[in-house]
């Protein structure tokens, strides 16, 4: 590398190895078959990819909000890293959702042009963090659930979901480990940190239940060997959380309750109602039912993309 002529870097365009991201969206899964698995409703597959993709996209947004305000420099790096991993997962899953529905919607159309009621993440992903304890509590719950789900999805009949899961497992293993370590340090730290960690865990225990309530799409796709029935993840989740909470000197059964109801997410009347849920069960984030927190996120996230129609970036 010609260190004495920094600007040569701008002109030797044949040297793409020095670009961190290349000049375009390089498909990391080139070669993975993109055909839809036989006997699967494409609309179901698209909805399922949005569920997993939106969990990642929205949680990544909340992590991005921590940039320049982490408690320590090492955590700046770690939180940005986790946000980047989840953003990468979201891009692949939103792209897959667009392929499945056959609409031609790409990752950016999915992220920047959908309305709140079209998002399919759980409410825990969109929750604003009152403090660092809330952040690591949410990250522990979401990544424990996601790791258990991705572990099973490596055997999915959808080759793209299987590939995304296989790639994501290493990432999410680190996310869960990072969150667990902080939950333990804060729980078993000072009197103040213990109180804050306990309060955070308590505050998210009820909303966390939403992750395990199977949606009709999940049930149909699980029967077809494509998705995971989230109710089957409960045992692994309880075991992991029990272990971490015990080490953190917190109540190990705090997440055992299945008392989830939409009101636990603080679903506010300020949001237009989502499309609702079939069969009389209470609607959830998986149906497009969200809180005002999502409105704030989308106002921020979509503002520039929507303000410059036809823009080139």
């Amino acid at each position: 590398m010609a260190f004495d002529d920094a600007y040569r870097a701008l002109t030797d365009h044949d040297d793409d190895a020095r670009w961190a991201y290349g000049t375009g969206f390089a498909d990391p899964f080139a070669g993975v078959p993109t055909e839809l698995p036989a006997g699967v409703d494409p609309a179901d597959l698209a909805a399922y990819c949005l569920m997993l993709g939106d969990d990642a996209l929205i949680m990544s947004h909340r992590l991005q909000e921590w940039v320049t305000r982490a408690p320590e420099l090492e955590d700046e790096l770690a939180l940005a890293n986790i946000a980047l991993d989840l953003l990468g997962q979201a891009r692949l899953l939103l792209t897959r959702a667009g392929q499945a529905e056959g609409s031609g919607r790409d990752e950016d159309t999915m992220a920047f042009r959908r309305e709140a009621a079209e998002f399919r993440h759980v409410c825990l992903a969109e929750r604003a963090d009152a403090d660092f304890a809330h952040l690591v509590a949410r990250l522990l719950v979401l990544s424990t659930w996601r790791l258990a789900a991705f572990d099973r999805l490596t055997a999915s009949r959808d080759p793209m979901l299987a590939a995304v899961a296989a790639k994501g497992i290493k990432e999410i293993t680190y996310h869960r480990d990072y969150a667990a370590q902080w939950v333990v340090r804060l729980g078993d730290g000072t009197e103040l940190s213990h109180a804050r960690m306990a309060a955070a865990a308590e505050a998210i225990a009820a909303p966390a239940g939403e992750l395990f309530r199977p949606h009709e799409v999940e049930i149909r796709l699980a029967a077809a060997g494509v998705a995971v029935d989230p109710s089957t993840l409960r045992a692994e989740f309880d075991a992991v959380l029990g272990q971490v909470l015990t080490a953190a000197t917190l109540d190990p059964h705090i997440f055992d309750t299945e008392m989830y109801a939409p009101a636990d997410c603080g679903a506010a009347a300020t949001m237009p109602p989502g499309p609702g849920a079939p069969g009389g069960r209470p609607p959830s984030g998986r149906d497009g039912e969200h809180t005002a927190a999502l409105h704030d996120i989308l106002t921020e996230m979509q503002s520039l993309a929507r303000a410059v129609p036809g823009g080139a970036w």
């Binding site: 991201y21 909000e65 940039v67 700046e76 790096l77 921020e300």
Partner: peptide, 30 residues
């Protein structure tokens, strides 16, 4: 130096630009 550009991460207009900017600001922390 993370701050002036960091303000734009949550508003980046494409997901690719968001990833590039987030990685850049992370590099600065590094």
């Amino acid at each position: 130096g993370m701050q002036p550009e960091g303000e734009w991460i949550t508003r980046a207009p494409t997901l690719r630009r968001k990833a590039i900017l987030l990685a850049k600001v992370q590099d600065e922390a590094g």
